[in-house]
Simulated assay, not measured.
Amino acid sequence: MTEAASHIDTQIPHILKAARTIAMVGASPKTERPSHQVMAFLQSRGHRVIPVNPGVAGQSILGEKVYASLSEIPDTFQMVDIFRNSEAAGAVVEEALPLAKEKGLETIWMQLDIRHEEAAEKARSAGLTVVMDRCPKIEYGRFQSKLS
């Protein structure tokens, strides 16, 4: 395990406890999609998950209104969970950074197989915590004893 991976492991339990509201970019209404399953799991653990997906904006996923972009969400959120490919992650971070203070954003989380080093560095420079190539559902399993 790299030093960076070890460091983020010490932060993950705090991140998951602190992120009461999560904006999920790339949330899908299709029940077979991983984003839908992770959204349902996070809701079952007490998080409010606000879906962001321009293709279904205005509709509802798991009881939450879908927004076309982060900037359209009227509520605060402590974490942005990115369920898009690595190339798209950069644009999501670019949209999130100017909203960070107003929305109470603390963490950018990029899902499994998603890495964008340049965007991560920009987010860190803005004072945000960044998690890449991880899934919060899996991390709940790894850190269950620290999250109970």
Rank of each mutant, 00 (worst) to 15 (best):
E3Y: 13
A4K: 13
A4L: 15
H7M: 14
H7K: 14
T10I: 05
I12A: 08
P13T: 00
P13I: 01
H14V: 13
H14I: 12
L16H: 00
L16N: 00
A18K: 15
A18H: 13
I22V: 12
A23F: 02
V25W: 01
G26M: 01
E32V: 12
R33N: 10
R33I: 03
F41E: 09
Q43D: 10
H47Y: 05
R48M: 11
R48V: 12
V49T: 07
I50Y: 04
N53V: 00
P54Q: 14
G55D: 14
V56W: 01
G58D: 05
Q59N: 07
S60I: 05
S60R: 09
L62Y: 02
L62D: 09
G63K: 01
K65M: 04
V66C: 08
A68R: 03
S69K: 09
L70R: 01
I73G: 14
P74G: 09
D75G: 05
D75H: 06
T76W: 00
T76P: 13
M79F: 02
V80Q: 08
N85E: 12
E87C: 03
A88M: 13
A91Q: 15
V93Y: 06
V93S: 08
E94N: 15
E95W: 08
P98R: 08
A100Q: 12
K103G: 13
G104E: 11
G104R: 04
G104S: 12
L105W: 09
E106V: 07
I108A: 14
W109V: 01
D113H: 05
R115V: 15
H116L: 11
A120G: 15
E121V: 02
K122W: 11
A123G: 04
R124A: 08
A126S: 12
G127D: 03
V130G: 04
V131A: 01
V131R: 02
M132Y: 04
K137H: 06
Y140D: 10
F143G: 01
Q144R: 15
S145N: 10
K146P: 03
S148E: 15
S148H: 09
